[in-house]
Each structure stands twice: as C-alpha cells, then as structure tokens.
C-alpha cells in the first residue's frame, strides 16, 4: 500500500511527495507489531538502494505468506535530488543528512525531515542505505557510531555485510537521520556500499539476503534465509587513509577489497599534459582495501583509499 508521508507544493503545477510502500502480513497470519523500515535516496546521487528496494519487495511478494511483520520501504527521501542527479536538495543545495531531526515549523527541507523522523520513529529497526558518492567505491558495510555500538552491532551482524566500522562520535554527525533516530530509541543501521550514480547488483543481492536474515531475527519473516557472513568489525584506529598529495588522473593498480602489503603499489596519479607520473602511491600498511577511488580526477587531498589493517 503506497502512502504519502509528506507533500509539498512546488511552484509550477507539481507536488513533491515523499512516499513509502507498506507491506503487511496477510490477514490472520500474525498480530505482530514488529516493523522494519528500509530508507534510501537521501543523497540524490546514491542509487544502490533503489535496486535493494525493488529486489526486497520482489522476494517478499514471491513468498508473501512468510511475512510476519510490517515492512515499510522508502525508496526516495530526496526524490527531486534523485530525479535531477543532485546529491543535495535541489533549490537549496543542502545536504539532507545534515538536517535531521528537522522541524515541523522550519523551511521545506526541515519540514520534510521532521515528517520522515516522525514516520520512522518506533520501527523495530531502520536500515538507511547509502552508496558512498561518485568518487569512492565501498564494499558492503555498516557504519555505527560508537555511542550505539551495544545496540547496533548485534543487528548489523545479521545484515550479511563484509565489514562493520564502529566510528567515533562527532558533533556534526548529530544532524544525521541515523543519529536522530538512534537517540530516540529507534535502532538505525547505516549501510554504505558500492559507488554513486551506479547500481552494483551483486552488492544489492548480498544486502537483500542480509535484510531477510535480520527480518527473521526480528520476527518479521518466517521463510528460509541465508546464514549471514561473519563481518570484520573494526574501530577507527585500525583504518588508515591514503589521500592524494598531487592533483592529476588516478589510475589504480590494485583491486577493491583485496589484501595489500606495506609498500605495495596502489596506483599512480598521472599528468596527461606532460606524460609524467605526478605521484606514485604505495600502501603504508598491510591490510585490505575496503574503499577505493572510483572517479579518476583527483586534487590534493582527494581520498584514494582506505585500508583496514
């Protein structure tokens, strides 16, 4: 059942709508109040979650009798952004994930943010799916603020991701959807996977497997599920960052999600005008490359890779 949770008039003959599709068990199956909410499309250039929303519903519909709780699917928290290939909210150039919990009496973006929080509040679990950005490729991972570690790590382990990154708390992150929900007692997991403006079907399928496993754990699904992968769990200190020190064109010489040894060649930053190599980049530690630069043009400081020691 498609429902509109917020509607805002646009100037010329259009209404902006934030919509969800609610799937509920067939009558008589259960009176469970358990509810999982799948949200994505906060950043208009992150599309990996679009496939997940589709595939999750396709599989539920194939075995609808196994649904024992409510599944709410929100494919587009920022529909204008997705439609216009804009990361932020068009017209405002604001990062929607810095506006939560929003305000009923605030501007249009703040109003929408408050409606979203209001709808998601009380979910048994929320999965907030992101797709990095156009610059970086990420393996399927869950990122957890250290303040919510005890509640969220057990849930994240069910999601069939490769990696769980427990990161330190930062004041600026208090404006995110996940923080705003976790702080009011609605467990919310942030998934990062793939790359902006693309869909990596393999990752989407992997995550959907995990969502079913989590739904079963929560009593929302009674069908067969996979045994989730054992993710690597790490904290900030175990992650090293490689940033460009020169600008140019980055060409990698390693594959994503592969082990490297200290000194291994990660890639080169090339100068297409002079034919020179501006910078040779080598690994500074043993580990596994879980983030890798996807967009070739780099400036000083551009993130090239993250390595998990």
């Amino acid at each position: 059942m498609v429902q509109t949770i917020a509607a805002i008039g646009l100037p010329i003959d259009e209404t902006l709508m934030i919509q969800k599709n609610r799937l509920i068990p067939k009558s008589g199956v259960t009176d469970s109040k358990k509810r999982i909410s799948i949200v994505t499309g906060t950043h208009g250039d992150e599309l990996e979650g679009q496939y997940v929303c589709y595939e999750l519903q396709r599989r539920i519909n194939e075995n609808y009798d196994c649904l024992t709780g409510t599944v709410d699917i929100y494919p587009a928290l920022n529909p204008l952004g997705i439609d216009s290939i804009t990361r932020g909210i068009p017209g405002f150039d604001l990062d929607m994930n810095r506006l939560f919990p929003g305000s009923e009496n605030g501007s249009m973006p703040e109003y929408i943010a408050s409606k979203i929080v209001n709808e998601l509040k009380g979910s048994t679990a929320v999965i907030d799916i992101h797709a990095s950005n156009i610059f970086l490729r990420e393996i399927p991972q869950v990122r957890i603020n250290e303040l919510s570690r005890d509640t969220l790590v057990p849930l994240a382990k069910k999601l069939n991701v490769d990696y769980i990154w427990v990161h330190s708390s930062a004041t600026v992150l208090e404006s995110t959807l996940a923080y705003s929900l976790n702080v009011i007692g609605t467990p919310t997991l942030v998934v990062e996977m793939g790359v902006g403006m693309r869909i990596t079907k393999e990752y989407g399928d992997q995550l959907v497997d995990g969502i079913f496993a989590l739904m079963k754990e929560l009593g929302i699904w009674s069908g067969e599920v996979i045994e989730p992968k054992q993710p690597i769990i790490s904290e900030d200190g175990e992650v090293s960052f490689i940033n460009a020190t020169k600008s140019g064109v980055f060409v990698p010489s390693v594959e994503h999600w592969k082990n490297v040894k200290k000194g291994d060649h990660i890639g080169d930053i090339l100068n297409p005008l002079t034919g020179e190599i501006n910078e040779k980049i080598n690994a500074e530690t043993d580990g596994i490359v879980f983030t890798l630069r996807e967009y070739p043009i780099v400036s000083e400081g551009s993130l090239i890779a993250r390595i998990l020691a």
């Binding site: 805002i8 008039g9 100037p11 010329i12 902006l16 605030g106 501007s107 249009m108």
Partner: peptide
C-alpha cells in the same frame, strides 16, 4: 521569484 510551500 517562485517559492515552495512551507518556505519561510
């Protein structure tokens, strides 16, 4: 010149 609903 053109505004959304809910605009301050």
């Amino acid at each position: 010149p053109v505004i959304y609903a809910h605009t301050p």
